[in-house]
Nucleic acid binder design. Structure first.
Length: 269
DNA sequence: CACTCAACCTGCCGGC
DNA sequence: TGCCGGCAGGTTGAGT
């Protein structure tokens, strides 16, 4: 869609624009006639810079989808917004079942092209501006458990519950490991594991447990078949054979190998 | 400032 | 069959 000019915008659903107070009418007016000049991301945020210096910003939440589809594809019950382009062809649709996702327009971007409204979101590990040393120092300054830190998008972005568990398993670190007790080599090992997991997942097209998790072309990823711990309670650890366990933590599930990821004596939750 | 927790939603699954 | 609790990949804003 880069290079295309927006010819129409429709929004349905109360919550779609809850992070955009001006509302659906202003939203549509603001986008009409604008040309999309790029597509970018930081962590779990996606945005489309426009030819007037603003950007259409999106977050998929838990169940959101951005799809490019033919206009004659029937609209399902979870269609929240539709953007059509001059010259016809495929249109951009935002679908969201659980409505944790949303759209917005940000009028101003920072010097590095990131929307002002997500200035609190840290760089993700694949951005050129990501600074490994700075990340290590910030992490070690925290007084918390390492999984909490990994999930904190203000420290490092892009890591969710699945990839946190997978990276910790690869690095053989327990989720409650105290960040302020970690030495730089251990942080480096963890960061390398994060990048390995995410590189493999991206190559596989992502983790699709069901039809909610698809690419912009509607295709499922197959990384769920490559998961080592997430969702595998009771199954054997592929390295040591010990049964993977599931534990409740932070109001969600953590999966780990209890033999290789030993709860630390001075752990932090 | 660092951190924790509840809240925001819908749908599916297993147990009774 | 229907009801109920539990659970799901995320972020925020108020509170400690």
């Amino acid at each position: 869609m880069v290079g295309s000019t927006i010819s129409a915008v429709e929004v349905s659903g109360e919550r779609t624009l809850r992070r955009y107070p001006p509302g659906p009418t202003v939203f549509a007016d603001r986008l009409l006639g604008r040309r999309i000049v790029a597509s970018r991301r930081r962590g779990k945020y996606l945005w489309l810079p426009l030819d007037d210096g603003a950007a259409l910003l999106a977050h998929l939440g838990m169940s959101g989808q951005l799809l490019m589809v033919d206009p004659d594809v029937p609209a399902g019950p979870h269609l929240r917004a539709r953007v059509t382009f001059a010259g016809g062809g495929r249109e951009l649709r935002f679908l969201d079942q659980r409505t944790f996702g949303g759209l917005a327009i940000d009028d101003a971007l920072t010097a590095d092209g990131v929307p002002d409204s997500i200035g609190h979101i840290a760089a993700d590990p694949f951005e050129p501006v990501f600074d490994d040393e700075r990340f290590s120092a910030s992490l070690r300054r925290r007084r918390t458990g390492v999984k909490r830190a990994l999930l904190d998008q203000g420290l490092v972005s892009g890591i969710g519950n699945i990839y946190a568990d997978e990276a910790l398993w690869r690095a053989k670190i327990h989720y409650a490991r105290a960040t302020d007790r970690m030495r730089p080599p251990e942080v480096a090992r963890l960061l390398a594991a994060v990048r390995e997991v995410m590189t493999a997942a991206i190559r596989a097209g992502g983790t699709s447990f069901d039809a909610l998790y698809v690419s912009v072309n509607g295709e499922s990823g197959w990384f769920d078949r490559a998961l080592e711990v997430y969702g595998r309670a009771g199954k054997a650890c592929s390295r040591c054979g010990t049964a993977i366990v599931r534990q409740a933590f932070m109001n969600r599930s953590s999966y780990l190998c209890p033999h290789e990821q030993v709860r630390p004596r001075h752990g932090r939750w």
